[in-house]
């Protein structure tokens, strides 16, 4: 997977890079408008992370350039501009998704994975992890060929976990992913415990290994036991 991070804030760029890099994918960085433009014209990426406020030019122009070049690269806008206008503008110009700063890296990863899957496999594709196979089109989960009946939230949760396999994901990030970031209930995320417990139980009963592990009371990790 080839990813380009266009972000002027070095610390943030490095952090995103560090989080995405591990799997051995190509993960390049651009910190300003000219560099970004150069990289885009030279290479193709599965997904481009685009910050809208860049030194030396508006991020929106880069998006226009990408479209002008007729490139098929997926574009995920990351911006502190929490404005609906930008969101509509960006999506109208052909961005695939929009993420408002500050965000969780796990959310970013999940969004990138979704874009990449859509780009590479069109509508129909299967996502798998060990004995788990997910038909993303039909929204069906099978464990060793056996159909698993999950609620909508459990299904979303599983996809989110697999996209962020091997990473510790906070309860906060999970709650925001499942219930949206406008849900202003910062007090306590223990209510997601029930969902995780149910998902885990259903998967183990269907014959899967126990991949979900609670981490330090902060969050969960999905990965090889």
């Amino acid at each position: 997977m080839k990813i380009l991070i266009i972000e002027d804030e070095e610390e943030l760029r490095e952090s995103i890079h560090a989080y995405l890099k591990v799997e051995g994918d190509v993960c390049e960085q651009a910190m300003d408008y000219p560099t970004a433009l150069e990289k885009i014209s030279l290479y193709s990426y599965d997904c481009i992370l685009l910050d809208l406020s860049l030194p030396g030019g508006d991020g929106m122009k880069i998006l226009e350039e990408i479209k002008k070049m007729g490139k098929q690269d997926g574009v995920l806008i990351i911006s502190a501009r929490n404005s609906l206008d930008d969101r509509l503008n960006g999506l109208g110009l052909g961005a695939d998704d929009y993420l408002v700063k500050p965000f969780h890296l796990s959310e970013l990863k999940a969004r990138i994975m979704a874009i990449v899957r859509r780009k590479n496999f069109g509508g129909y594709n299967v996502m798998s992890f060990q004995e788990i196979a997910i038909d993303l089109m039909g929204k069906e989960v099978k464990i060793e060929g056996q159909l698993l009946s999950l609620t909508k939230k459990e299904y979303d949760l599983l996809i989110y976990f697999i996209a962020n396999q091997g990473k510790v994901i906070t309860k906060n990030a999970i709650a925001e992913h499942l219930w949206g970031d406008e849900m202003d209930l910062s007090d306590d995320f223990d209510f997601i415990y029930t969902h995780i417990k149910n998902l885990r139980k259903k998967m183990i009963e269907a014959g899967s290994k126990d991949y979900i592990k609670s981490m330090y009371g902060v969050g969960y990790k999905f990965g090889m036991p």
Binding site: E9, S15, I16, Y19, V100, K101, P102, H104, L105, T170
Partner: peptide, 17 residues
């Protein structure tokens, strides 16, 4: 405030790993 907050958030996500 959003950019530094994004940095803190990202660093925390990394720290957790």
């Amino acid at each position: 405030m959003m950019t530094p907050l994004a940095v803190i958030n990202a660093k925390l996500d990394l720290l957790l790993q």
